[in-house]
Amino acid sequence: MDAKRYELNVQLAQMLKGGVIMDVTNVEQAKIAEEAGAVAVMALERVPADIRKDGGVARMSDPAMIAAIKKAVSIPVMAKVRIGHFVEAQIIEALKIDYIDESEVLTPADEECHIDKTKFAIPFVCGARNLGEALRRIAEGAAMIRTKGEAGTGNVVEAVRHMRTMNREIRQLVAMPVEEVTGFAKANGIPYELALKVRELGRLPVVNFAAGGIATPADAALMMQLGCDGVFVGSGIFKSATPAVRARAIVKATAYFNDPAKILEASMGLGEAMPGLEISAIPKEQLLAGRGW
């Protein structure tokens, strides 16, 4: 990926700002998402809630399914590959969709290395729990960041934790004298140049979305008010009682995240949200956010 291609890839993410990216598992759901006003769809075989329930190894989806979704909608299509599985990424790139999510929701393929994303022309989005993780992914070539949250739980608490952590670390960096940056970068595993860049910009140098556990219009607006540029909704839509209605409501609440009257309007009469999970009730080895580093 040359510098110009990387710039174009970061700029596609800029076009998605203020929008909702929805997980879909078939053509029908992709059309519902597009019709509801999603800015992109994430094509995958099972939503995180089912991956969590089924267990076993979760891999890249069948490319035929992803291709069918690509054909059915005009909005950007994203697909997930396993952390470190650069051949899955090569396959998705050859499929010519719009974005790859190197995702902790799938079972990691490499416990030492994430994908060298600079080798690809297709853009990557990666998850992060804190500033260090976000900037390491950017150093590897990610063009967009999202919080990890705890996918498939319908519980927003981890996404909030990750966003607040990033914001706190950014504020620390902005406030500190430059000679303290070296130590801060070392302690947090941050490439020094990127630490300086964040200090200058007062935010991540790429678009940052919220993801993991967002299930209601209020969750989406909460993440936006915490400073995210947009939201991913995974299981929250198609595991709810009324997916089309909920999808539209989350799109509305994300666009008008600062307008309580409009969020109220969007929150009315949505029916049952997806069943939620207490994070503390999940066995430690089944937590997804801890995958990657």
Binding site: Q14, M15, L16, K17, G18, G19, V20, E34, E35, A36, G37, A38, V39, A40, S74, I75, P76, R248, V251, K252, A255, K262
Partner: peptide, 15 residues
């Protein structure tokens, strides 16, 4: 501005 036209069209209409 630039963005996703289907999303923008939907929001323009709803509100």
């Amino acid at each position: 501005p630039g963005g996703e036209s289907t999303c923008l069209a939907r929001l323009l209409q709803i509100f």
